[in-house]
Structures are given as structure tokens and as C-alpha cells.
Computed example of a mutant assay.
Amino acid sequence: MKTLCFRAYGALAACGTQKAGTVNRPTARHFGRGAILGVIDAALGIGRDDEDNRRRIAAGLLTAVAAEGPRRVRNEFRTVQTVEASNLPPFASRGDAFNTDAFNPVMKEENGKRHVRWTAKEGINPKKPGWKRFHTMVTYREHIEDGIWRIFLTVRPGWEVDLDTIAKALRRPAFELYLGRRDMPLGLPPDPKVVDGGLLEAIDAYPTVPDFDCGVLKAFSRSLRRRLNGDVDLAWDQGFPGAPEAEETRLVQDDPTSRVYWRFGIRPEMRATISRPAPAAKAAKVARGQSIIDQFWKD
């Protein structure tokens, strides 16, 4: 039995939930199955429209995540533009919705306020002009501050997915990897490793914080360890080999069935809180003057 382990750490992260909407976008405190598989697809270079390969990878993998650190939930706001339309066919894309090449601006006044309507000579109903109007709205979003996650993957029985190929892709990802949103990059390399054993064995074998040997990075490593107070919050797919006994089971809607249409299926998510394993013996130091990051990029 093999388990692939890798690390997700960054100053900020966003773990989407099924309750996400236009105005309010909440976050969970750990990454779900959809987010994990999205990272794997990005590393392998699988586009959203490549449904066959994406479904093969998703069907063949079981996922688990160990969440640690304070993981404080913070709020922010952003402004976005929306389009109000009348007597126009559905827009093919957001870019098409904001395209005004075939429209003429007309100044309108409603309730004492003036605004611009972009009008077309003909709409769906030729007797009426088509028009669209742009609005600016405020959206509220949550993100996670100061969290670190260990992610574990294993192959579902009967499926052929190569964990070593995924590990190699995580070292040299085809697409950029980020923690939920494009403005939230990884703060450490994923550092993937394939280990023998099930989930609990992988948790013991793969440390939460890597060991650094250089001065600044060594202090950074100590700083990360000081923030790992409390136990480990563990969530995993039903049937993951070597998992502990579940304390709670929840039905979550985060199993990606189509990235093109952004559809997700419902799955049972097993959860438990486990004690943090004792620190493992330090591995042999790399050559003097090199950090673990230098060694990582040489692999």
C-alpha cells in the first residue's frame, strides 16, 4: 500500500464551501476533495475541458487532509461588476457580456440618478431595442490565515493511477498552484513523497514542518512549529486505507463531476481529531550552504 503526501502552506488560503454565492463567499478550515483534485489536475496539466482525464484521476484517487495551525478566519471585501440585460440573447462568456463594440451609449435618469445604458438596434424582439447596464457591487469573502495542511492521496482499489507521476508533477507543475484563489500562492514547495502504509502511517512518516538548515529558514521552521498548538483535525474519503475510527461523518458537496459546468457531487466525509505525532528523528543534513528548498528543486 502506497500513500502520496505533500504539503500546502501559505500566508493566506481559501477553502471553498458548497454555500458559496455571489455576495458572500465563506470558507471551510480545511481543503475538500474538489480543491485537492484541482491541485492535482493543475500539476498534471489537465485543463478544465479535458473531462476524460480529469474523471479518470478523480475516480482513481482517495483523498485525506490533516489541518493544523491557528487557521484564523478573516473577512475581506472586493468590488465586482455585474451586467443587467434586457431583450438580449444569453451571453456566451463574461467577456462577451462586457463587450460594447456593437452597442451605443445612451444616458438615462431614474429616481434622480443618471446612468448609461448600452443599447443595440435590435434585440431578440425586433420591436424593442436591446440594452445592457453595468453595476458595481460589493462582495464579502472569507479566507484562512496562518494554516498548514498535509494532504494524502492513495489509489482506489481496481484503478490504475501512478502516484510517482503525480509526485513528479507536483515538483514541476504544468500550471501555477495556489491555495484556493489566484492571489494566494504557496509559501513552501509541496515537497511530495510516496511512503509505504496507510493514512496513520503516512501521518507519522511525513512531518508537518520541514527541517531547514540555513539560518533564516531554520528560524522560519521554528516559528511554524511554535504555532502548531493543539491536536490535528483530520478529514478523509470513506474507504481510505489505514484511517482512524471516524468521530463524525458529514455529507459534503465537493466531489467534482464536471469542471466545465462547475458541478459537484455529494460524498460522505469522515472526520476525527487525533494527537500530534511525536517529532521524527532528523534526517541527514544536506550539504552545507544548501537548504531543503535547494535540494527539493534538484530532485
Score class of each variant (00 low, 15 high):
4 L>Q: 15
5 C>Q: 04
6 F>G: 02
8 A>W: 12
13 A>S: 13
14 A>S: 13
16 G>W: 05
18 Q>W: 09
19 K>H: 08
23 V>L: 14
27 T>Y: 12
28 A>S: 14
29 R>Q: 14
30 H>P: 05
39 V>H: 00
39 V>W: 00
58 A>W: 11
63 T>I: 05
64 A>S: 01
75 N>I: 08
77 F>M: 15
83 V>E: 07
86 S>C: 05
96 D>L: 13
96 D>Y: 04
98 F>N: 03
102 A>W: 01
105 P>C: 00
107 M>K: 01
108 K>R: 15
111 N>V: 02
112 G>S: 02
118 W>K: 00
118 W>P: 01
118 W>G: 00
119 T>P: 05
120 A>M: 06
120 A>V: 06
121 K>N: 15
129 P>D: 04
138 V>L: 15
140 Y>H: 14
141 R>Y: 10
145 E>Y: 10
149 W>N: 08
151 I>P: 03
154 T>S: 05
156 R>A: 10
158 G>Q: 02
159 W>K: 09
167 A>L: 13
171 R>G: 03
173 P>S: 00
176 E>I: 11
179 L>H: 00
181 R>S: 04
181 R>F: 08
195 V>P: 11
197 G>F: 09
200 L>V: 09
206 Y>M: 02
207 P>N: 03
207 P>L: 02
211 D>P: 01
215 G>I: 11
218 K>T: 15
224 L>E: 08
228 L>Q: 03
229 N>W: 00
231 D>R: 14
233 D>H: 11
234 L>V: 06
236 W>I: 12
237 D>W: 02
237 D>T: 10
238 Q>N: 04
242 G>L: 03
245 E>G: 04
255 D>K: 13
256 P>L: 02
257 T>F: 07
258 S>K: 08
260 V>K: 06
265 G>S: 01
267 R>F: 06
269 E>I: 11
269 E>W: 08
270 M>G: 09
271 R>F: 07
273 T>D: 10
273 T>I: 13
276 R>E: 01
284 A>M: 02
285 K>F: 00
288 R>Q: 09
289 G>R: 11
289 G>T: 03
295 Q>K: 08
